[in-house]
């Protein structure tokens, strides 16, 4: 029965980001969420466990506040969590995140059959942690899967590339990153949330793991993307629609 490891991230909900005077970002009213596409990663792990048995262990790296994310992720059907927590674990670059996850998997998770990552995280969307982690652990990697199945020690995955769909196989253990179309994530109910509080979570501190090495990239600036627009509204009555078309013509964008 497979042991599936799924990686998820607790991220800033970008809908609460505002443009600060001066062009930076205003984080004052931000909220956090489980990275959108990691919900698909968790759902896929739980779907396979429901079909084949086994266990699902979720792993995240983040600051202590990400404990909320661990609980959220557990409410989506995972069996156990590994929480790599330290106040310094914010804004890590993908290579550092990978170093921490790889060490935790090797030393604290035990044998596994499959690792599932999301296609990309909601904040960085670097699409790096999955493929890098496969290399760090020396296992095969299939990125951007739209369908996966496990049978007799083999992963079969369908992946979508530009202009072609490939069906591939790989021996287990292996790592896949999944596209959001692979499934529809569940919405946890009250009972799921209550049960999540009873599931085992192993918290690993900085001292439980070795060094990550320094960052490979340095962020020089983060500035809000500009979107200055006229914001003129029209009704749906015939006269209004004609006025809308005239406005487009006046701006010279309709022949």
């Amino acid at each position: 029965m497979p042991h599936i490891v799924v990686c998820f991230k607790w991220v800033i909900d970008e809908t609460y980001l505002r443009r600060a005077p001066g062009g930076g970002l205003d984080f004052s009213s931000v909220d956090y969420k489980l990275s959108d596409y990691d919900r698909n990663a968790i759902e896929e792990a739980v779907r396979i466990r429901t079909a084949l048995g086994g266990t699902v262990t979720g792993i995240t790296v983040g600051p202590p506040e990400a404990a909320k994310g661990v609980k959220d992720a557990l409410s989506r059907g995972m069996d156990a969590g590994v929480f790599i927590a330290d106040p310094a674990f914010v804004d890590l670059d993908p290579s550092q995140t990978v170093s921490l996850i790889a060490q935790a998997v090797r030393n604290h998770v035990g044998p596994f059959d499959l690792i599932i990552c999301g296609e990309g995280s909601g904040d960085l969307y670097a699409q790096q942690v999955g493929p890098r982690l496969a290399e760090a652990l020396g296992i095969d990697c299939v990125a951007f899967a739209t369908q996966i199945s496990l049978e007799g020690g083999t992963l079969t995955a369908q992946r979508r590339l530009e202009g072609v769909i490939e069906v591939v196989t790989a021996p287990l253990p292996a790592l896949v990153t999944v596209l959001p179309e692979i499934n529809t994530p569940r919405i946890p109910g009250v009972k799921d949330t209550l049960m999540a509080g009873k599931k085992p979570v192993r918290t690993l501190a900085k001292g439980d793991l070795g060094a990550t090495g320094g960052p490979r990239l340095q962020t020089l600036a983060v500035r809000a993307a500009a979107m200055e627009r006229a914001c003129e509204k029209f009704g749906v009555e015939e006269a209004e629609v004609i006025r809308f078309v005239d406005a487009l013509k006046k701006r010279g964008v309709l022949a």
Binding site: P94, S95, A126, Q127, G130, F144, R216
Partner: peptide, 23 residues
């Protein structure tokens, strides 16, 4: 930054222990 490139680049970067700017 094709699907293939987005898989290969981070794997190469990991082997070369270097940073990668995605997309």
């Amino acid at each position: 930054a094709t699907a293939r490139g987005r898989e290969m680049a981070p794997r190469l970067a990991q082997r070369l222990d270097t940073g990668l700017c995605s997309n």
